[in-house]
């Protein structure tokens, strides 16, 4: 693990020293020493700050939009999908990017560490366990019980290969089996029951736009929902507007969502946004016969019309 970090620091420093980048987005130690946060570096001398991100690692792709180019980025495979999304949506150019991909064993969601264990002083990965150090001493938790939801659906923890530098220590998380049982559950609900569930969830939404602002597929410079004219969405946080917002968001990313889960992670009130996103993803997979609709491809499923496309879209 540490080796990977050393290699990464070197790779970032040399990207600067070779003049390959003007800026670099990576993770660094957060205010809580066991968590990480995004950092945008402007010089190789900052490379010491680079962290792999054991816990609470935000995804970084979207920062590329505003960074001075050529811009570097450290990606794990979920973030690599986001970068690929931005490239295919023509928000950034591949030649303006310097990508370092790393392998990833999964990232801890500190919110999943039981409350009784707060006062965390340090976190440590030991094989298949997470050791939570607290003032009262260490406790071991099974690794898979504390991972971010996104990791439970990970495409692959191996370092992605479309990168300028590939750093893989062989400890990447194996691809997660495809599991749509959560979507099945929602689909099997009676319509009234399902409506009531979404109504309840949408009513909770405070329309803070954290989901949209975190999403690599929501990259419009000026979001149509922010425009005063025509006003698609008023600022009123009332139920009809909530439905309007959530449908618009979900439809706008349909076919382009990379399943990174950053929207849901960013949501401060815990809306299950992935239930909507994954429903679309699955429908696209079954209706259009594509393999893993999260992976951006040259021929966009919903962005391209083929004569044999199915007529219905439910």
């Amino acid at each position: 693990m540490n080796d990977l970090r050393e290699q990464l620091k070197e790779a970032v420093a040399s990207a600067f020293s070779q003049g390959r980048v003007r800026s670099f987005v990576c993770l660094e130690r957060g205010f809580y020493p066991f968590a990480t946060m995004p950092a945008i570096l402007h010089s190789g001398s900052d490379a010491d700050r680079v962290e792999i991100g054991l816990a609470d690692a935000p995804l970084l792709a979207k920062y590329l939009l505003d960074m001075p180019k050529p811009a570097g980025i450290v990606v794990r495979s979920c973030d690599a999908l986001g970068v690929s999304r931005l490239i295919r949506d023509r928000r950034v150019k591949r030649e303006d990017l310097y990508i370092i991909s790393i392998s990833c064993p999964g990232v801890v969601d500190t919110a999943k560490i039981p409350m009784s264990m707060h006062r965390i002083t340090a976190l440590e990965k030991a094989g298949d366990a997470l050791i939570v150090h607290t003032a009262l001493g260490p406790t071991e938790l099974p690794w898979s019980s504390v991972l971010l939801d996104r990791c439970l659906a990970c495409v692959s923890g191996a370092a992605s290969t479309d990168a300028d530098v590939v750093l893989d220590d062989g400890r990447g998380k194996p691809p997660a089996p495809v599991d749509y049982s959560e979507i099945d559950e929602v689909e099997h609900m009676a319509p009234d029951e399902r409506y009531a569930m979404w109504e309840k969830e949408f009513a909770k939404c405070i329309r803070c736009f954290a989901c949209r602002n975190a999403c690599p597929a929501c990259s419009c410079r000026k979001c149509s929902l922010d425009l005063p004219e025509p006003e698609w969405l008023s600022r009123a946080v009332i139920l009809p507007e909530q439905f309007m917002f959530h449908f618009t968001r979900a439809y706008h990313v349909a076919g382009r969502c990379v399943g990174c889960g950053e929207c849901e992670r960013a949501c401060p009130v815990g809306l299950p946004l992935m239930k909507l996103n994954r429903k679309f993803t699955r429908d696209i997979e079954t209706l259009f016969g594509v393999d893993d609709a999260r992976i951006p491809r040259d021929v966009e499923v919903l962005g391209t019309f083929l004569p044999d496309d199915p007529e219905e879209f439910c």
């Binding site: 995004p38 950092a39 405070i206 329309r207 736009f209 954290a210 401060p268």
Partner: peptide, 13 residues
């Protein structure tokens, strides 16, 4: 501010 996503989560809560 470089890492801020410009959402309203912090202020709304």
């Amino acid at each position: 501010s470089a890492r801020c996503r410009g959402c309203g989560a912090c202020t709304y809560l």
